[in-house]
């Protein structure tokens, strides 16, 4: 009994922090999305939801968001997997340093890295500059200010998260299991397919989910790297909130984004648990 009281007492600071930083803003968001005014919370209306749902543009934006999220998650996972696998398996004494290096990009802000990518992929950027000076191309390739640029930058920015999630999810991998499989006659390829891949799958899927969620909720990178051409839910919410000042619509869009993607996460987690069972 006393233990339970103690546990509750210990939980209080965390719960309060949750309340202040998560639940209250969420409640505000929900309230605002039903407001009859675009700015203050009064009355009750479903108009903002209706407006968003009947507008084919928002459906297209939602589809764009989904496509961007899936592409970024897919590419980031494919690129992060070998790195994470190497880091998880290496016995090198540089492992710590290498891991730190792999996730070091997290130490700089996404905005800074986005600017970095603008320098690399821009019309007068490193790549176009090199190709032009080598006379391989005449006019610069359009590498940024479109969804390609947004995808590339997001992949790079989110890859460290994928690596971290994978490293955390690779708990069941072990060199000994690989050795056991080899002893039983599995060549390296089959060891990978039958042992390493299935055992690392939970980590891979967690990484994919994390990147997907971060990608679909991003707006700075799609906005800057997309040259304004990449319309995703994040950029729409941002522009409704800050440009047209339709806070209620922005709130409704956010709530829909939240509901849509929390259900994705729930379904995904279910599937994941089944996989691990």
């Amino acid at each position: 009994m006393r233990d339970r009281g103690l546990v509750l007492a210990l939980l209080i600071p965390g719960l309060l922090a949750m309340l202040a930083t998560f639940i209250l803003p969420m409640a505000w968001l929900l309230r605002a999305s039903f407001s009859t005014s675009t700015m203050v919370q009064v009355g009750f209306t479903l108009d903002h939801y209706r407006a968003a749902l009947v507008d084919p543009f928002y459906w297209k934006v939602a589809l764009n968001t989904l496509t961007l999220g899936l592409t970024v998650a897919g590419v980031a996972v494919v690129l992060a997997y070998p790195i994470a696998l190497f880091l998880a398996r290496t016995t090198s004494r540089w492992r710590g340093v290498l891991t730190a290096l792999a996730v070091a990009p997290l130490l700089t802000s996404a905005v800074v890295r986005t600017y970095g990518w603008m320098v690399i992929l821009g019309d007068r950027g490193v790549i176009n500059g090199t190709l032009q000076s080598l006379s391989i191309i005449e006019t610069p390739l359009r590498l940024s200010n479109n969804s390609f640029g947004a995808t590339v930058a997001l992949v790079e920015i989110l890859m460290p998260y994928a690596i971290l999630a994978m490293l955390a999810g690779f708990g069941r991998l072990s060199v000994q299991l690989e050795e056991a499989a080899a002893m039983l006659g599995a060549n390296p390829l089959r060891v990978f397919w039958r042992i390493v891949l299935p055992l690392s799958l939970p980590g891979v899927l967690t990484g994919a989910l994390l990147v997907f969620v971060l990608a679909i909720s991003s707006f700075v990178t799609p906005r800057l790297m997309g040259g304004g051409r990449v319309f995703v839910l994040g950029t729409e919410v941002f522009s409704e909130a800050t440009v047209t000042l339709n806070w209620s619509l922005a709130a409704a869009l956010s709530v829909m984004l939240l509901v849509l993607f929390s259900s994705v996460i729930v379904i995904y987690q279910r599937a994941l648990r089944r996989l691990e069972a």
Binding site: R172, S174, Q176, L177, E179, A180, A181, A182, M183, L184, G185, A186, N187, P188, I195, L199
Partner: peptide, 17 residues
């Protein structure tokens, strides 16, 4: 290794989970 046709029992068994 995979062609040596030897059986190995590891200390921690190394069964595939």
């Amino acid at each position: 290794v995979y062609k040596r046709n030897m059986g190995m029992v590891f200390q921690a068994y190394a069964l595939f989970p």
